[in-house]
Simulated assay, not measured.
Amino acid sequence: MPPPDPGSAPPPALALHDVSKRYGRRWAVARLTYALPPGRSLLLTGHNGSGKTTLLRLIATALSPTAGRVEVLGRDAVADREAVRRDVALLSHASFLYEDLTAHQNLMVLGRLLGVDAAEDVTDGLLNRVGLSRRTDTPVRGFSAGMRKRLAIARLLMKSPALALLDEPFGELDPAGIQDMEGVIAELKAGGTTVVLATHLIEQGLTLCEERLHLQDGRAVVA
Rank of each mutant, 00 (worst) to 15 (best):
D137Y: 06
F96L: 09
H104C: 01
L126S: 01
E82W: 00
R135H: 13
L114R: 15
M108Y: 03
A154I: 00
G74N: 12
R75H: 05
D121L: 05
D117A: 13
D76Y: 01
L165H: 02
Y98V: 03
V88L: 09
T136W: 06
R75S: 11
H93G: 01
H93D: 12
T136G: 10
A83K: 08
V140N: 08
G142W: 13
R155F: 11
L110R: 15
V78A: 11
R141V: 10
L113W: 10
S92L: 12
A118I: 03
A154K: 03
L126Y: 10
F143C: 08
L126E: 12
L90M: 09
R155T: 08
Y98M: 08
V116P: 02
R155E: 12
L157P: 08
G74T: 11
D137M: 00
G111K: 00
D124A: 15
L73P: 02
V130C: 06
G74E: 12
V122T: 12
M147E: 15
D80L: 03
L113D: 02
V140H: 10
G146H: 05
D167S: 14
A154Y: 01
R148I: 01
G115L: 09
E168Q: 10
S133R: 09
E82S: 09
R81K: 07
E71G: 00
E99W: 11
S92Y: 09
G115Q: 04
D100T: 11
L114K: 09
N128M: 13
V140K: 09
R85H: 05
L114A: 05
R75Y: 06
